[in-house]
Design a protein around this nucleic acid. Structure first.
Length: 250
DNA sequence: ATTGCAATTTACGCGCTTTA
DNA sequence: TAAAGCGCGTAAATTGCAAT
């Protein structure tokens, strides 16, 4: 999917990209070897060729971030194809929503492993960095406006410059609206019964219970909820990716 | 070289949504 | 709560192209 992408070239939008595909150009190499498509002159084509050659080099060195910033936000889901294998799925809990709120848990699911970082125990800059160090991309739900800015606020510079896929916007593109739980339900992704009644608001209360009364059970349930949230992002990402890919190519 | 046109991209403002 | 992007509608800018 990615090497068939031309949307990041200046002067190429969805209409022209589709026409490029129609004319049988299915890869960057095809494009380099072809004459300019309709709507693109010699001048612009030369610029495109330079960009593609340069990007091929960057990707070869693993520098995906540069390419991802060229891609419009609404099409970043395409990055999931090669990068999803080493994605870090991320979800945080906090003690509220206001400006003074503080991060209580950072949950990271990567390479089949759940890593809970708990405030006052093991939530540190170093541990966040360590948990993300082998990742190729970040996957969140509404992380663009919540999780990532909040992490950046409390731990400036801790997030590596990785491509980021926000599944809330991805889900919307497939016609699924609502929060994470609603989207999961719509796709038939199951939740364990213990956390069926837990939501973000309850998560705040569970944290208070742990802080004030050292309730081991409350913390345990909070982490179980966070784990469920973050683990479910993986099948969600896979299915949304497949849905959008099918929709785009036909 | 200049002009006008058509197709397309790009920019902008508005209202809506989700996150704990 | 505030931040950010989306879709939508609309306006503006860009591009290629053909005619002059």
């Amino acid at each position: 999917m990615l090497l068939q992408t031309f949307l990041h070239l200046p002067g190429v939008g969805e209409i022209r990209e589709r026409r490029i595909w129609m004319e049988g150009v299915e890869s960057w190499d095809d494009y380099l070897a072809s004459p300019p498509p309709r709507g693109v002159g010699e001048r612009l084509k030369k610029r495109h060729d330079r960009m593609l050659i340069e990007l091929k080099g960057a990707l070869g060195r693993g520098q995906w971030h540069r390419f991802s910033t060229l891609l419009p936000h609404s099409h970043r889901w395409r990055l999931f194809d090669p990068l999803g294998e080493r994605a870090a799925y991320l979800d945080i809990e906090s003690d509220g929503l206001g400006p003074g709120a503080v991060i209580t848990v950072v949950g990271i699911y990567t390479k089949g492993r759940y890593i809970p970082l708990v405030r006052g125990y093991n939530l540190t800059r170093g541990n966040i960095e360590e948990a993300l160090k082998d990742s190729s991309m970040l996957v969140t739900f509404n992380g663009t406006s919540f999780d990532l800015p909040m992490i950046e606020k409390h731990y400036p510079g801790v997030l590596p410059p990785l491509p980021h896929l926000d599944l809330m916007h991805t889900a919307r593109k497939t016609g699924l609206k609502g929060g994470l739980k609603a989207v999961e339900r719509a796709l038939g992704i199951e939740r364990e019964v213990e956390v069926a009644e837990v939501n973000g608001e309850v998560a705040v209360r569970l944290w208070r219970l742990w802080e004030r009364e050292r309730s081991r059970g409350a913390l345990k349930l909070l982490l179980k909820y966070n784990k469920e949230d973050v683990k479910n992002l993986e099948p969600l990402a896979r299915r949304l990716y497949e849905a959008l890919k099918a929709k785009t190519l036909f």
